[in-house]
Design a protein around this nucleic acid. Structure first.
Length: 873
RNA sequence: GGGCGUUUAGCUCAGUUGGUAGAGCGUCUCCCUUACAAGGAGAGGGUCGGGGGUUCAAGUCCCUCAACGCCCACCA
């Protein structure tokens, strides 16, 4: 049966089979009543509208590694999955579907539209989490949550009412970022700025009752009908005489004053600014200071309002079309004096890329500053630490300058704001439930999606019921794993809300990884068409290959990760190597008993590999504890491929042929494979589980995923001279290759050494792995026979008599090259030793090390010189 | 305007308290050796972006310049 295992690892079949095995046995389910210490992670909930992309794949893989590692390391590990209702994104999708049927949400009405959206969300809610199963995600689906489910809604209401009662939520009219397409306010962080080449227009505003004019520079001439004043700097001599005078707005004829305000920059434009409080945040502030009433001229759709002095022909016109018309009119009437090229930043809606319209409107806000205090403290005093640390600065910088958060959205899909207005008096009550549905109507706005996300670490644990088992056992969570792009959107807000409502930091570590990019370093996006679908990669290379590759690309500094389809060959090849090495071991375990390794019978090779395994376990544990997760992959790759496969399996082949050594060698093979699979399991769960279950053993564990994770073990510390064997074999191979000695030809060697017994112990290894026939010995001082190739290993000389095979000139060249290298090293090292200051200042061990290295070089130098001499003779 | 990151082998990137550079891929040579050709063995390849400084010693610390990338703020 074992011999029937295919030589190429079949990831697809294995992964399906193994995942099903774990799932059906309920192995992902965490026990809130467990006495083990808890380790918990909540997933950054993907949008219900989403499909799995590479960013998720990386994020989920890293979380799964941490969860699996801790589960095996004695923790009660809980990973909570879930999805986000994604207000605008989801509403957009459903509205688009309606539009295809020629309908709008208004045709359906709020109630019917919500029903439709719920249906859609319910249908898609689990799709992305099902895709995560392909990744091997060991999250607890029995605890799956949705940011719009009953529990989250209760938490949202609780938080909203409490914040309102504390005076930290208020409603008011302010300039907000308004998306004319979404028809809603959005928050500052949802506004992305793009640099655009625009214009600065200089417009002349004639003075009233006298000749002359004041020239104003603006980028937004279409707001001219909303002007309430012209502002200049109080100390600007150019305009000091004009302050207090009145000008007439071009095209409108309305009269407005010239005022002085510190806000104006004397050196920008003409030094005179038109003030439009309804459509610009700075103008709003100026307007407020001077007591002007704002005049709206652009509506929520970004069109010119049909009101006031806006000319008839502009009514309902898009703001940019109106701009062109207005410029035409100004120019025609000689009010437009100059048009200058001007580069400026334009705000765009994060969701739909529509240009934001700053608009004065009535919205709800969270006063962030008082909340931020504790959130700053928690990071400064180390209750929360960022990995890598540099993100702390980024976080703190933002937190220390935080502005109020606009939380109301003019959407239907979302948590409706729990404020109720009396139908007649308009009196407002903020409460979890409508006090009197007959007479009170609920506020029609909903909350920013991130409001419910901010509560995610504790709303998923049963909060506000702080007595729930999950909350008691698993809150606060252990770590939050995410990309840097949502530190402000999400991480910062979770920290503030967690501290405010649970008095605890929601997690003690924020592990920030890089973003996935395409091979050119560009962000992946559907519109660019440069996305790589993780499911396609999994189909092609396997889930473990995807996981291993991505993990290995994670650097400690959290650099962005460039990937291409071919990069996953790295993980696929490694999985295949694991598969085949395991096949070899399994095929050679026939007749093995169930006993542990007999330590009294260990060979040098056995000791060497056990010692290496032990170091690997130690390094793995140290690295993962410090979130050097990429490093863990490198360590395991190096150990498994370059040590276990390249050397130990080859050495074991020799030992297996020795009846005295066979049984214990089998035990070592089995043990090291078992432990290695455990080490690899968090990163490559499927293949390791599959192979592990094929290993004959008396394990008490039902599955590898539940087995104990290896830790450093004093009993496995050995020192051995294997390096001498490896060096010997490698140098003989080198000689063979240099002189094109065919593999079929075994050569004899002579070893000139004072360590005869050590070499004798290793003869079998050298013979087989370097294709050597007879080995003879002589003392290190014996003369070198003529016509030989040779290698110097440590203080020993390996002589390969090849009189008829080698080109002596070639060999002299080869040895000279080696000599040059030795001399260069010696030169540099003795330079140090001869430097008094070095001897004074350098650590003792380094000096000793340097001296002994020089001594070693001198021995080799002597040997090589001797060789060259004998070749020349 | 402020802040951060990057610059190391042809390509993509590691390099944790400073002690004369590593991997994967690619290249060259040999090998279907009974786990694996998605493999094995061997080889070649780097003045660690430029300049300056600290030090016995700098890819690693400090200063400065340059290029590229990102974030925040935002002057109408």
């Amino acid at each position: 049966m074992l011999k029937d295992l295919p030589t190429v690892y079949d990831a697809k079949t294995t992964e399906e089979e193994i995942y099903k095995f774990w799932e059906e046995n309920g192995m992902f389910k965490a026990d809130a009543k467990s006495s083990k210490p808890s380790y918990s992670i909540v997933i950054p909930p993907p949008n219900v509208t989403g499909v799995l992309h590479m960013g998720h794949a990386l994020d989920e893989t890293l979380q799964d590694i941490l969860i699996r590692y801790h589960r095996m390391s004695g923790y009660e590990a809980l990973w909570v999955p879930g999805t986000d209702h994604a207000g605008i994104a989801t509403q957009n999708v459903v509205e688009k579907k309606l539009r295809e049927k020629g309908l709008s949400r208004y045709d359906l009405g709020r109630e019917e539209f919500l029903k439709e959206t719920w249906d859609w969300a319910n249908k898609h809610k689990s799709a992305i989490l099902d895709q995560c199963k392909r990744l091997g995600a060991s999250f607890d689906r029995t605890r799956e949550r949705f940011t719009f489910d009953k529990g989250c809604s209760d938490a949202v209401k609780e938080v909203f009412v409490k914040l309102y009662e504390k005076g930290l939520i208020y409603k008011g009219a302010y300039i907000v970022n308004w998306c004319p397409r979404c028809q809603s306010a959005i928050s500052d962080v949802e506004t992305e700025y793009e640099t655009e080449q625009g214009h600065l227009w200089e417009i002349s505003y004639p003075l009233k009752g006298e000749s002359g004019a004041i020239i104003v520079a603006t980028t937004r001439p279409e707001t001219i009908f909303g002007d309430v004043a012209i502002a200049v700097h109080p100390s600007d001599h150019k305009y000091s005489e004009l302050i207090g005078k009145t000008v007439v707005i071009p095209l409108s004829g309305r009269e407005i004053p010239i005022i002085a305000d510190e806000y104006v920059d004397k050196n920008f434009g003409t030094g005179a600014v038109k003030i439009t409080p309804a459509h610009d945040p700075n103008d709003f502030e100026v307007g407020k200071r001077h007591g002007f009433k704002p005049i709206w001229v652009i509506d929520g759709e970004g069109k010119m309002k049909a009101c006031g002095e806006v000319p008839q022909e502009l009514h309902g016109l898009d703001r940019y079309e109106a701009r062109e018309k207005i410029l035409g009119m100004l120019s025609y009437n000689n009010f437009l004096l100059r048009t200058k090229e001007h580069e400026h930043n334009v705000g765009k809606c994060q969701r739909c890329n529509t240009t934001i319209e700053p608009l004065l409107s009535e919205q709800w806000f969270v006063k962030m500053e008082p909340l931020a205090k504790e959130a700053i403290k928690a990071v400064k005093d180390g209750r929360i630490k960022f990995v890598p640390e540099r993100w702390e600065k980024n976080y703190l910088g933002w937190m220390e300058n935080i502005r109020d958060w606009c939380i109301s959205r003019q959407l239907w899909w979302g948590h409706q704001i729990p404020a109720y207005y009396h139908n007649e008096t308009g009196e407002m009550i903020v409460a979890k439930e409508n006090p009197d549905p007959k007479n009170y109507t609920q506020d029609s706005d909903v909350l920013d999606t991130w409001f419910s996300s901010a509560l995610w670490p504790f709303s998923t644990m049963g909060w506000p019921n702080t007595e729930s088992d999950d909350f008691k056992k698993f809150y606060p969570t252990s770590v939050l794993v995410t990309g840097f792009d949502i530190i402000f959107f999400w991480v910062a807000r979770m920290i503030t809300m967690g501290l405010e409502f649970t008095k605890k930091a929601p997690f003690s570590t924020v592990y920030i990884h890089g973003l996935i990019r395409d091979e050119k370093g560009q962000k992946m996006s559907k519109s660019k068409g440069n996305t790589i679908d993780p499911v396609v990669i999994i189909d092609k290379y396997g889930s473990d290959a995807l996981r291993f590759t991505m993990t290995s690309l994670c650097t400690y500094g959290g650099q962005d990760i460039k990937i291409s389809d071919e990069r996953f060959e790295y993980g696929r090849n490694f999985a295949n190597k694991i598969w085949n090495a395991s096949r070899f071991v399994l095929m050679n375990l026939d007749g093995v008993d169930e006993a542990d390794i007999d330590f009294s019978k260990l060979t040098l090779a056995d000791k060497w590999i056990l010692n290496e395994l032990n170091n690997t376990a130690k390094e793995f544990n140290e690295n993962i504890k410090n979130y050097r997760i990429g490093e863990t992959a490198h360590i395991l790759y190096e150990f498994f491929w370059n040590k276990y496969c390249d050397w130990y399996l080859e050495l074991a082949k020799i030992q297996l042929q020795n009846d005295d050594l066979k049984l214990n060698t089998q035990r070592v093979l089995r043990y090291v494979l078992d432990m290695t699979l455990r080490l690899l399991h968090p990163i490559m769960p499927h293949i390791t589980e599959k192979v592990w279950q094929l290993i004959p053993q008396k394990s008490k564990f039902k599955a590898l995923m539940l087995a104990d994770f290896p830790v450093y073990d004093d009993k496995l510390v050995f020192s051995s001279d294997m390096d001498l064997v490896f060096e010997t074999i490698k140098s003989i191979r080198n000689v063979r290759q240099s002189f094109n000695i065919p593999t079929s030809l075994k050569c004899d060697i002579e070893i000139r050494t004072e360590q005869k017994s050590t070499f004798e112990e290793m003869e079998a290894y050298i013979q087989r792995l370097a294709k050597v026939d007879k080995i003879s010995y002589a003392s290190a001082s014996s003369p070198i026979p003529p016509k030989s190739a040779a290698a110097v290993v440590g203080a020993s000389k390996i002589i390969i008599p090849l009189a008829n095979l080698i080109d002596f000139d070639e060999e002299i060249k080869r040895q000279n090259k080696k000599l040059d290298k030795l001399l260069a090293e010696k030169n540099s090292l003795s330079g140090r030793i001869n430097n008094e200051k070095f001897v004074q200042n350098a650590p003792k061990e380094l000096i000793e090390q340097t001296k002994s290295r020089i001594a070693e070089i001198e021995i080799q130098e002597k040997a090589v010189t001797e060789l060259i001499k004998s070749l020349k003779d």
